[in-house]
Write a protein that binds this DNA or RNA. Structure first.
Lengths: 143, 143
DNA sequence: ATCAACCTTACCACCATGGCAGGGTCAAGC
DNA sequence: GCTTGACCCTGCCATGGTGGTAAGGTTGAT
């Protein structure tokens, strides 16, 4: 299978397949006499594996570890689980960070009249020193 | 105030201050005879404004609009509010995407023994065609 | 033989940020 | 005045994952 077919079959662009090979994430496939890369079913599985890992938000270093675990038939599932749990923690942190931004903005937007007048608590908040801007309607202290 | 002091006062690195000037996000300040940039209080406020906007996750194009709204004393607060709401929607989309990744991984990790044996549903899921992996305890069909 | 569709490598661009190099400036201490 | 150290200036390089483009080779079908 040539690279174009491999790309179509795996959903990874030919460009990225070459890149992944370049950085050593996937093995270099055999070449034809004229230099064309030649992929087998197994290679397509690897590309699908990488693509799905990316879709789950794994970083390239994590993916490197994941693929080596995948190839290692004697791996311990605990190693995979630990990596997954690490990644879940990372995702949760990013979610919390984005959620904090959204919460702040929601509060500010709620306070903004949104009419033709120039007064705007959103701009005010950006102008002034950092104040506690998180959900002021809730004074119970629970997050 | 020289750029180093402005950086310390605003929390924006000197490097980034020059960059923001370069791309026209902030105005070029006056220079001393020897070429040193000279900042006033007002400029520091602008830098703080930009920094807080970045902390809230606004993109550079959005910040460009925000700063021009900030400078425009005759702006309509509706314009600011619309920009904020757009950004909230973007943030929500990113949160939902990350949350979906985390949910999938949590489900897989829960199914993984995490012991010394190699069998691992996480790797299996990455190997196989996309299946419905979202919260399998719910069979109602609602997404 | 020709032509289109594919393949190859090797660049450039993005964007926000940091780092480094090479050289100028300023202020304090002597 | 001279030295020294802390600052400032510009300009270049690197990042990371992806897309684009260009110039040239291969293949297969007509």
């Amino acid at each position: 299978m040539k690279i174009g077919e491999a790309a179509a079959a795996s959903g990874v662009s030919a460009k990225m397949i070459r890149y992944y090979e370049d950085i050593g994430l996937i093995d270099a496939p055999p070449r034809s006499a004229s230099g064309y890369r030649h992929y087998r079913e197994e290679d397509i599985h690897m590309l699908l594996f990488v693509r799905r890992g990316r879709e789950l938000g794994f970083s390239m270093p994590q993916l490197r570890t994941l693929t080596s675990l995948w190839r290692d038939k004697t791996r311990a599932s605990a190693d995979v689980k630990r990596l997954a749990n690490d990644h879940i923690a990372t995702l949760n942190a990013r979610i919390a960070s984005l959620q904090a931004m959204a919460d702040t903005l929601k509060t500010l937007a709620r306070q903004c009249q949104g009419d033709a007048r120039p007064d705007c608590p959103i701009l005010d908040a950006l102008r002034q020193p950092q104040a506690d801007r998180s959900q002021p309607q809730d004074h119970s202290g629970q997050k």
